[in-house]
Simulated scan of single mutants.
Amino acid sequence: MFKRIHHVAIICSDYVVSKRFYTEILGLRVLAENYRPDRDSYKLDLCLPDNSQIELFSFPGSPARPSYPEAQGLRHLAFAVDDVVQAAAHLNRHGVETEAIRVDEYTGQRFTFFQDPDGQPLEIYESV
Rank of each mutant, 00 (worst) to 15 (best):
I25M: 02
Q53Y: 00
G95K: 08
P60D: 04
Q109I: 04
V81N: 02
Q86G: 06
V85S: 11
L91F: 03
L74Q: 10
R39A: 05
E33W: 06
Q120A: 03
D82G: 14
A87Q: 11
Q86E: 15
Q120T: 12
A88P: 13
S18H: 05
H76M: 04
R36P: 00
Y22R: 01
Q72M: 12
S127V: 15
F114I: 14
D50A: 08
V128S: 12
L44Q: 09
H76K: 05
L91A: 07
F79M: 08
D104W: 09
I11N: 06
Y15H: 11
P60Q: 03
F59S: 14
A100L: 11
P69C: 10
D45R: 01
S62C: 06
S18W: 03
E33N: 14
P37H: 06
V85E: 14
I54A: 12
K19H: 07
H76E: 12
D40W: 00
L28A: 05
S62W: 09
R93G: 01
T98P: 02
Y125H: 15
R20V: 06
S13D: 12
L26V: 07
R29E: 15
G108Y: 11
D50W: 02
A71K: 11
Q109G: 06
D116Q: 02
D14W: 00
Q115W: 04
F114Y: 13
I11L: 03
N34S: 12
L48C: 11
E99N: 11
P117T: 10
K19R: 13
H76C: 06
A89C: 15
H94E: 12
P69E: 10
V85C: 04
D116E: 03
Q115M: 06
G73Y: 05
L122H: 13
L46Y: 00
A80P: 00
S41M: 09
R93Q: 14
E123K: 13
V81D: 01
R110W: 03
R39I: 01
D104M: 11
P49G: 09
K43G: 02
D14I: 01
R29F: 11
N92R: 15
Q86P: 01
S58A: 12
F57V: 02
K19W: 00
L122N: 14
C12R: 00
D83A: 05
R75C: 07
V84H: 03
P66F: 06
I5K: 00
F113H: 13
S52N: 13
I10R: 01
P63D: 08
R75N: 12
S67K: 13
A64C: 04
V84D: 04
P69W: 10
L77Q: 07
I101R: 01
Y125C: 09
D118C: 07
F114R: 13
Y106F: 08
A9R: 01
F2E: 02
T23V: 04
G73E: 08
L56P: 04
E33Y: 09
R75I: 08
A32I: 04
S127T: 15
L91Q: 10
S13Q: 14
E70T: 11
A9S: 11
